[in-house]
Simulated scan of single mutants.
Amino acid sequence: MFKENKVKLGIAPIGWTNDDMPELGGEITFEQCISEMALAGFVGCEVGNKYPRDTKVLKKALSLRGLSIASAWFSAFLTSKPFEETEEAFKAHRDFLYEMGAKVIVVSEQGNSIQGQMETPLFDKKPVFTEEEWDLLIDGLNRLGDLAAEKGMNIVYHHHMGTGIQTTEEIDRLMEETDPKKVSLLYDTGHLVFSGEDHLHVLNKHINRIRHVHLKDVRIEVANKVREEKMSFLQAVKAGVFTVPGDGVIDFKPVFEALDAAGYEGWFVVEAEQDPAIANPFEYALKARQYIRETCGL
């Protein structure tokens, strides 16, 4: 399964140290994080807040361990701030990733987002874009796509819990109204299942737009509790709603089969933000690596 050397397997540092909640994994160093990624058998990663921003320093640290950068998260504020503010920050982010050899830039619209609010109920207070905000978002993303193309790169949009692009309907509209030459999709299994979407339907419908994949599993009993008890996104993460592939409710075999049949090329990035004091990140990285090898041969 999968053409040789066409799909690379990475892992996100958020399992070791959480950007949104620095108290999770605060004691874990950058060096421990990337060393354990390599030991677990991964060849790449995304970028966390403890990573050095000096590209020479970062390249040396990663190359010593046989790792490269797959991408990194970018928060856009196209619906809530002047485009120029997002543009300036995006160019700096793009240039950093370009220097690190990444081909895609992960973009998520954070205008009105509640994902970083500790006490805001995730499902009851989910933002919904107005028509004016949709226009700003679509136009802004197309323009960011142009800026990425200047460096031969692509933007991949990350649908995300607690934001204006979370549901199947919202993803469908985003894909319909953005220029397919300028805006691609990041497919995240965990966020879709947590939201209550049919992740395989979204995968098959938009498979030709998918240029980046996050492999994230869900503990469904925690997801149900989040709805019932009106918990926030950050509270859900602390409660362990996410885990690595093979440890939750999702069967990844049909996901891998569909992507293989479509000739997917690019990165698979394991991403499972948990409390590292409860879920040892190295142990879970090994668990994910074994499951992926057994399920799709990578």
Rank of each mutant, 00 (worst) to 15 (best):
V57Y: 06
K181C: 04
V193A: 11
V213L: 02
P180K: 13
E31V: 03
K230S: 14
V241K: 02
I292H: 03
L122F: 15
W16N: 03
T29A: 02
I155E: 05
D260Y: 08
I278K: 12
L298D: 10
P127L: 07
I155A: 12
K253Y: 02
H214R: 03
D20S: 15
K50C: 10
V57S: 15
W73E: 05
P13W: 09
T79P: 10
G15S: 14
V106I: 15
E170N: 11
W134I: 11
K6Y: 04
K60H: 13
V244P: 09
L62F: 10
E170T: 15
I210C: 02
S108V: 10
Q117Y: 11
D251H: 12
E283M: 11
R53T: 08
D217E: 01
V255T: 07
I105V: 15
L174C: 11
I28G: 03
D179T: 01
T167K: 10
W16Q: 01
L39T: 12
K126F: 04
K56G: 13
H201R: 14
E150T: 06
F256I: 02
E170V: 14
S68Y: 03
K238H: 05
G246L: 01
F129W: 14
D54M: 07
A76N: 06
S68F: 11
A261F: 08
E273C: 06
Q235A: 08
K225T: 11
L215D: 00
Y187K: 05
Y98D: 10
V244W: 01
F252A: 04
E197L: 04
N49Y: 15
L186T: 01
E99K: 13
D179C: 07
D275R: 03
L62Y: 01
S68V: 09
I210V: 12
T55I: 08
K238A: 04
T178G: 01
F242P: 00
F129S: 12
E85C: 00
A89R: 15
G10F: 01
F2M: 10
L62E: 05
M161R: 07
E265H: 07
V7A: 01
G297K: 12
V249W: 00
T86G: 05
F77Y: 15
S63K: 13
V226E: 08
I69C: 07
K205A: 12
V270H: 00
L39P: 06
E85F: 11
Y264L: 05
N112K: 13
G111M: 13
E271D: 01
I14N: 12
